[in-house]
Design a protein around this nucleic acid. Structure first.
Lengths: 220, 220
DNA sequence: TTGAAATTAGAATAATGTTCTAGAAAGGCG
DNA sequence: CGCCTTTCTAGAACATTATTCTAATTTCAA
């Protein structure tokens, strides 16, 4: 039996490879299951210890504290998500392809790793506040840097509308994130990929320079 | 000195009115300040008690437990947000006006109540998981119900595109939420209202039936 | 004024995160 | 192989924090 738990093992095998770290991976995978079932706060270190058949000593040795464990899982997820997206973004030859690739890849990843995705939504605040804030910002810059460059280029060539730089990311992934959050919380049934076309098109409409430059009716 | 703390007093005065509840409001207002400064998890009941010059007995009497206090604050914020939006939504005579009112009102509210808004982003998970899940779902249905009806109507009259019902809300407020979250976390500087036009237009583009029915180019 | 209900108080308790010391396993190197 | 260093595991001890409990105190209506 090759472990049914979830696709998490594959993720961890890449982020924390090697036989030496089997136990560390076991703690992470077990903790994810606990977090998913009970929520971040409700899970105690003792719960994690029991689930991984480990000891508090091991847990603190590997992760420092509970937040450290949460952060490790979070960054593992972020890495996996990036790895899933990178090739598709790199294959894109223009802004529109890149945008559609971004949205599609994001939705697909969430559908493939629902546990991890749910965890990441829940843990985002904890990581963003904690001592890893800088690391997180840096990674996110890396993830969006290439895309923003393509967009700038698109602005010059007239394909992309000139908008405040900091609004591009929210416009592009905001709706997808919002829908995925609802799906992971069980508030809607249809898996995100089922609406991929909708969100891809919306992203392009928000940012692409379409037919009419502006309605421009300012009447109040 | 009419208390400088924040606009929170006005909010609480509506949600928990009366002289009898002055102490309860004081606990809530003080807790919000603590949460905002230190983060949800870092704040202890003792911190809250000290800040409100209260006692643990009072706190537990009024709120049951720490999560109860968090939930009370959360719903106070939700109520205030709804109250801020309702008149503007009701004034809208068609789908486009309603959508723009929704987005504008949301952005304005976040700018007026940044502490409360920041708190709500942080606490959403805790409330959505906890024993108030149903109450939260119900309120959110109420908030979007009227708008969805207007949208349905717009679909019939050809103003609004027919999209999967559950995608409207993410398309409309997803980008705004995403940007507000970034602003409240200090990752971007410009206040959300400064980009109101951008997000209003994006919302309409995502959902409104504009000029060309569809590009429909399916070439890969 | 008086009695019941609501509220406040804070000591006592229980749950949980974290530290610490000892020892076991792993891996290099003569 | 045998010694030594480093890494890892273990779980008891400790510290912090949420929560409970009982006894005052206040409020308000009759």
């Amino acid at each position: 039996m090759t472990s049914i738990t979830s696709g998490i093992e594959a993720v961890l095998a890449r982020v924390e490879p090697g036989a030496r770290k089997a136990h560390k991976r076991q703690i992470l995978a077990g903790a994810l299951v606990c977090f998913d079932r009970d929520g971040l706060d409700a899970v105690t270190v003792e719960t994690i210890r029991a689930h991984a058949e480990s000891s508090v000593g091991s847990i603190y040795h590997h992760f420092g504290n509970k937040d450290g464990l949460v952060a490790a899982l979070y960054f593992a997820g972020l890495d996996d998500q990036s790895a899933r997206m990178r090739p598709r973004l790199e294959a894109a030859r223009d802004a529109r392809e890149a945008i559609e690739a971004l949205v599609a890849a994001y939705l697909e990843w969430v559908c493939e790793q629902p546990m991890l995705a749910r965890f990441m939504f829940r843990a985002r605040g904890s990581v963003a506040d904690g001592p890893h804030r800088d690391k997180l910002d840096e990674r996110n810059r890396g993830r969006f840097g290439a895309l923003l460059a393509l967009l700038e280029q698109g602005v010059k060539s007239g394909q992309v509308r000139k908008l405040p730089r900091e609004t591009y990311a929210p416009l592009l992934i905001g709706p997808s994130e919002s829908y995925c959050r609802a799906w992971l919380a069980g508030r809607v049934k249809a898996p995100p990929v089922e609406h991929a076309a909708v969100f891809m098109e919306a992203a392009w409409l928000a940012v692409g320079a379409v037919a009419a430059p502006r309605p421009a009716s300012r009447g109040k």
